[in-house]
Design a binder for these strands. Structure first.
Lengths: 341, 341
DNA sequence: ATGAAAGCGCTAACAA
DNA sequence: TTGTTAGCGCTTTCAT
């Protein structure tokens, strides 16, 4: 039923090859006389010819599709739930891909019997992977990919320098937060981490905090680091010791949100008695009361740059700078105020 | 370089067909002796065989991919910006697709030289289209689709009953809002619309409002309908006439947000002097002050049901009920309160 | 400038 | 139960 090059060829009185050349081959090296080209185009139009992309993809072994992998075990991402990095990131990824004439596909773990299979079976010309904390198994899978792959939120050394990465500048972002607090007169500043595991990510931000403080002659001690666990034990202790710190920088917005929720229960007013800064500056910050001051990652830009990188690799050129680091900003909202003397 | 069925066949001492049958044909009708099946599987494993999906897709003329089209002129959707229906919807779409073993692809208008081409060239087994207000051109395109297509947020008659639709129950949703206000003692209730155009959507909700009020013996007059235009002229007038109404239901959250922003400037306190209800109940409601009470659409469920419908059609069965209508809920927040006497 | 041949890897249909 | 044949629609040689 569908019209093929052959039929168009017959109608135009040429061979299928010519039809293909006229209709699909954008290269300048195609030499077909203008007269026949016109005949072919007319025939195609009359017959309502449409190229079968599946045949073409097969023939060329490329799909002009980018696959997006996500999270531990390639779990399904949510655009709406949770802290919504993913939504922001994806806006950039989609923007970047469309710009290059590619489309973007969300891959469930169930494509193929194993993720590796789906990753490498040719259905995608390239892959983007995103997660702040890859499992060891994930790392192995990613390193074994036979398809061009860029890791968003990947740290330079995390994949033995073998995979290109895009990440925000944690050092500079944390420094922005510290600077803001210093400008408000704060000196006794704490840093909040998730209680469970130290990821390469939280470690990176903690180190950034230590360095930033050290540069300002305010070295960080153990007692300046709060580990927030699900039972809030250490957090509550921190909040009760009212006079120890006047401000706290949290490793993530989520943790900062927990501080904001917990504080009033223990009689700590924010920001009057304690200024709080988060990291990521997603819409979640605006939903909190008080709205959370937060370091923003240029997530959309990170997504877009990841695709740019991917395109370089797909194009065959080893990327000039395979580790992109993008600067953060600071969104000042209601959870920080001058230190009260 | 890549291993093909042929090579596996050679190694296992069988024909390529048998390999295909053993490795890919999930149907129960495949009759291959267990012994050879094992030999084939071993050979495949040793050689590191991986099925070339592109070849398979080509052969079968199907991709197990769903394409997502969006908005007027097939513009690029944003997951993060704007009112974020799209993010919620997509969570459902992805959930539904993954459940059926399909993946989801975001299609730019630039796939192929025209949208129709990309829609119908075989790269997708089915399509989902979303937009509250399709242009006439869009309508035509959608009706001409040769690929199974479901319209999310489509009204039953909107596409000449030719396309299956999924939508929320505007009547029941608006009734929920009216009921809530009546329970709070409100009787003089206004309805706010965008000033520019009446879409099938806003018309539907307005009608629902009129009916709901009429059922409660509180018929709606013209002066109970506020058209909010970019210059806020009519809105300001409405807000200044303080005593006319004690509550207003808005056609969308966005408009309700404008009321919330505008009111204090004209000395109207919300909710004390005016209760406000929105429609959609996206995260945006929680970002507003006061947080906006709003009718929620079951967006994720709508996305998922759209895919279920699509699967029925792809499966070859004309859907039993091609027009799915899902019930709304009401999220009560801070922008409504009992009428003050 | 155009065409003939050949094949990408897979799998229905039929034959044995 | 297994194998042979054939072809999906396209495009890249290589000849003319």
């Amino acid at each position: 039923m569908p019209v093929t090059v052959r039929q168009v060829a017959a109608k135009a009185g040429v061979s299928p090859v010519v039809v293909s050349r006229v209709l699909h081959n954008k290269a300048t090296s195609v030499r077909v006389s203008e007269a026949t080209a016109i005949r072919v185009r007319e025939a195609a139009k009359e017959l309502g010819y449409r190229c079968n992309v599946l045949a073409r993809n097969f023939r060329n072994q490329q799909t002009r599709m980018i696959g997006v992998l996500h999270g531990v075990g390639f779990e399904r991402p949510s655009f709406d739930q949770g802290p919504r990095y993913f939504a922001c990131l994806m806006d950039g990824v989609v923007e970047g891909a469309f710009k290059h004439g590619y489309s973007v596909t969300l891959c469930p773990h169930l494509l193929g019997s194993t993720p590796q299979e789906a990753m490498n079976d040719g259905r995608f010309d390239g892959l983007v992977w995103y997660s702040a904390a890859p499992s060891e198994e994930n790392r192995r899978m990613l390193l074994e990919a036979t398809v061009p792959l860029v890791v968003i939120h990947g740290h330079k050394g995390e994949f033995g320098d073998q995979l290109p990465t895009v990440i925000c500048d944690n050092d500079q972002g944390i420094d922005l937060a510290v600077e803001h607090l210093f400008n408000l007169g704060h000196r006794r500043i704490a840093f909040a981490l998730g209680g469970d595991v130290i990821t390469i990510e939280s470690f990176s931000r903690l180190t950034a905090f230590q360095n930033s403080m050290a540069r300002r002659d305010a070295p960080v001690n153990d007692c300046d680091i709060v580990h927030i666990s699900p039972d809030f034990e250490e957090l509550d202790e921190f909040l009760r010791a009212k006079d120890r710190h006047t401000a706290v920088i949290s490793h993530t917005d989520k943790l900062a949100g927990q501080i904001l929720e917990r504080a009033p229960k223990l009689g700590v007013r924010i920001p009057d008695q304690l200024s709080v800064i988060g990291f990521d500056s997603t819409a979640y910050c605006r939903e909190l009361r008080p709205a959370l001051t937060s370091v923003n990652q240029p997530l959309a830009m990170m997504g877009e740059r990841a695709i740019d990188l991917l395109m370089e690799i797909i194009g065959g050129a080893p990327p000039l700078s395979p580790h992109v680091v993008l600067p953060c900003g600071l969104d000042i909202r209601e959870s920080t105020s001058p230190v009260s003397i």
